[in-house]
């Protein structure tokens, strides 16, 4: 798993740096100096990592960084990861369609009720409290410009 993820990253960086070198060659020297200084060694290092993986060497020690928990069997972890990614992606889509002001309470309530299996009372109270805090701080106090969702624009209902 670690080697496969490493291979994907190294190939992506190799492709990116290759594209960067190719693009930079057409620019004036002022614009291409730094991209070439960085991209050429980066391409070499990425190819070295690809070779390391393809030659079947051990993945090596993990970095001094956050590590994913390994307390669940891989298939459970994969399923839960897919569900989490779907929620994150779904939230983004709902924000695009309905705008922040509607998407925030909708997501919070849906997550608590469907994913967290919380009671109706708690879900409603928690959602209202969070929405009040969000609306009061970001909309009323900080006046952040939250646009209406695309759905409202398509229907001609956006103020």
């Amino acid at each position: 798993m670690r080697n496969r993820a490493s291979l994907i990253l190294a190939l992506a960086i190799a492709a990116l740096s290759g594209w960067a070198i190719f693009s930079a060659l057409a620019w004036p020297w002022k614009a291409k100096l730094f991209p070439l200084v960085i991209s050429i060694p980066l391409l070499c290092l990425a190819l070295a990592e690809v070779l390391w993986v393809l030659l079947g060497s051990a993945p090596g020690a993990a970095a001094a960084d956050f590590k994913l928990s390994e307390e669940h069997p891989p298939e459970v972890a994969r399923r839960r990861t897919a569900i989490a990614v779907a929620w994150i992606g779904g939230f983004f889509v709902v924000i695009l369609l309905l705008g922040f002001l509607i998407a925030v309470p909708l997501l919070v309530f849906a997550y608590l009720k469907l994913q967290g299996k919380e009671s109706w009372g708690f879900s409603i109270a928690f959602t209202l409290a969070l929405w009040a805090g969000f609306y009061g701080l970001f909309d009323q106090l900080l006046h952040l410009p939250f646009p209406a969702g695309w759905l409202f624009e398509w229907l001609g209902l956006a103020g």
């Binding site: 990253l9 620019w27 980066l42 001094a64």
Partner: peptide
């Protein structure tokens, strides 16, 4: 990171960060 391979990955990540910093209109040309 640890060892030669860890260091390569560290520099790969750092180089990627530098590349990402180049995105956008360059200040000179």
């Amino acid at each position: 990171a640890q060892g030669a391979r860890g260091m390569v990955r560290g520099f790969l990540a750092g180089g990627l960060g530098m590349m990402l910093a180049m995105v956008g209109q360059d200040p000179q040309a």
